[in-house]
Nucleic acid binder design. Structure first.
Lengths: 332, 332
DNA sequence: TTGTATGCGTTATCAG
DNA sequence: CTGATAACGCATACAA
């Protein structure tokens, strides 16, 4: 910047003011400055600027990267929105464990990000404490806490009703009466909601939730396969399965294949989470599709609004998934 | 920090020295400082530190996010490696266009990242110029330039031989003589190499490359479908297809489905890039699988080595993809 | 073993 | 309309 000032024969503060359009400057002076910027190839130092202004124009994202398609989609959506608004994005992986989550958040905090988008782990209390102490603008994504946290914004999708809809479809349209569920990792809020939706769907259609098998998968293919075995390897196994997220779905379809089963033949499946290829490969999956792009853009929007006005009341937004009826639930 | 110093009754420089272990300090003093840090909840300001030291401990990634699975995998691998080494990762999307690429790079540069991992667009000259001017440590990923760029490290996979292997498999094992290719976006280095590999494979097996249809897809589903139409809707269409990357594969399988074709019945396919579900869904794809994790970790390793020693000679590393023979190429 | 002073590159306040 | 100057929070050279 001092280079630019020297070349343009002005002071550093004038250079700063033309760059930031922060006060009136003589058109001729401005022209000289712009030319000097061009000539020297000057680019402002965001680090120094941040130190001075207290704002970094960086948003931090902390979520688990384990479920690759969902992670990739959300990251993509967030990056796009954040960039559109003139911000950059720092990415950190929570691995869905409280320790890594805390570590990720600390990194974000030390970089003085202007705000954080967090998909909280199963035990996020330490994380919340850390965040609260720093009073950093925060929006929770994907997992919307049941208890209303003070001044914490959140975006997620509806889980209970959509899963109930999936169950109802299995019962009413395809006549299933023995339905099991492979739920995602235990402890996560979305998992709890999806299980609740499963039970609700059963009840509403005259089935007994206490007799339906629910097992947790979603952490690894092996663990998910074990969950399936617990559900299927019994005297009267279910004839239909609700799969709680995309990781579970991929692992279960793979495992069913090993058993020689391709839904809907042998067993019917419905899944939470869609895939770009769900319509092209067999079995063609019947799914509840999350509006991932919207999730990302709304998260950023909420966050920027809170950065602009920290006094806002906390907002929780729930988006509607879309029911994609295809073939894995039984041919129509 | 001044808070900490006051509470511990020492100077700011002592606090700095205990945090960074940068000179001997009396055990008692150190204890007092650590307690003061704990009590005040102090966390060093990375922004101020960066301004002072000239290092941000941030790595920038610039690549296209369009091909979601590949993007997600690489990002995941990079994030993990970078975090392990005590760095953070800023993510930017080049959209695979020179303008956006330049924009992304400028953002990275303004944040004074310590190094950049770039998947160059088809016309990266402006980007390279910008980078060279700033002399920022750089490693190219995925697309390894043919011409040896001075002092630019690069990691990618072998493309020519692996695609030739795919073609050979089609000819020798399954007896195809009319083979077409849906290549990825034109202009990208990897695309050129994969087409070269396609031609090489044809020649080696006594087929005439000049008679084989090669069309570009990979930018959108529609454009990829159009490429397929140009290949298939002719008097003597190919009986086998080489699919140049994962985006192309998903779009083509979807389009074939609309035409009532499920490989290998009707047409055989082999693809570059694997999917986690490629083995479980029909058609079970025969693929060349990229070692994505390794790609990411090697990129980071090369970058950190160059940051440590900018005088190093440029290194190009090519990883070997793995041939996954499944069913889409014809049942064995 | 510890403290003081300086400067990193900005922006913002205050004069002129 | 423009320039000089201080301060942001840290790391480090120099002093004690």
């Amino acid at each position: 910047m001092s280079d630019v000032a020297r070349v343009a024969n002005v002071s550093a503060s004038t250079v700063s003011h033309v760059i930031n359009k922060t006060r009136k400057v003589n058109p001729e002076t401005e022209k000289a400055v712009r030319e000097a910027i061009e000539a020297t190839g000057y680019a402002a130092d965001a680090v120094a600027r941040s130190l001075r202004t207290g704002r970094t124009h960086i948003i931090g994202l902390a979520m688990t990267a384990i479920s690759n398609t969902y992670f990739g989609d959300v990251v993509h959506a967030l990056e796009r929105t954040v960039t559109d608004r003139g911000y950059s994005l720092i990415l950190t992986d929570t691995h869905d464990t409280p320790e890594r989550e805390l570590h990720a958040l600390r990194a974000l905090l030390s970089h003085r990000v202007d705000g954080i988008v967090l998909a909280p782990s199963a035990a996020p209390h330490a994380a919340y404490a850390q965040l609260a102490r720093r009073k950093v603008p925060l929006v929770l994504i994907d997992r919307v806490p049941a208890e209303f946290l003070v001044n914490v914004d959140a975006v997620g999708v509806q889980n209970v009703e959509p899963i109930a809809t999936l169950v109802e479809h299995l019962v009413v349209v395809h006549g299933h009466t023995r339905i099991g569920m492979v739920a995602p990792k235990a402890g996560i809020i979305t998992t709890q909601e999806r299980i609740a939706g499963f039970r609700l769907g059963l009840e509403r259609n005259g089935l007994d939730p206490s007799e339906a098998a629910v097992e947790h998968g979603g952490e690894s293919a092996e663990q998910t396969a074990a969950a399936l075995a617990r559900i299927l390897d019994v005297p009267h196994p279910p004839t239909a399965l609700v799969l709680g997220n995309n990781m579970v779905t991929v692992a279960i379809i793979s495992e069913l294949r090993k058993r020689g089963i391709t839904p809907p033949r042998g067993i019917a499946t419905v899944s939470f989470d869609d895939f770009p290829w769900a319509d092209s490969f067999q079995p063609r999956l019947t799914t509840m599709s999350q509006p991932v792009d919207e999730l990302g853009s709304i998260a950023v929007q909420l966050l920027l609004e809170r950065i602009a006005d920290p006094g806002l009341d906390a907002r929780h937004v729930r988006l509607e998934p879309t029911f994609e009826v295809r073939e894995s639930c039984g041919c129509p």
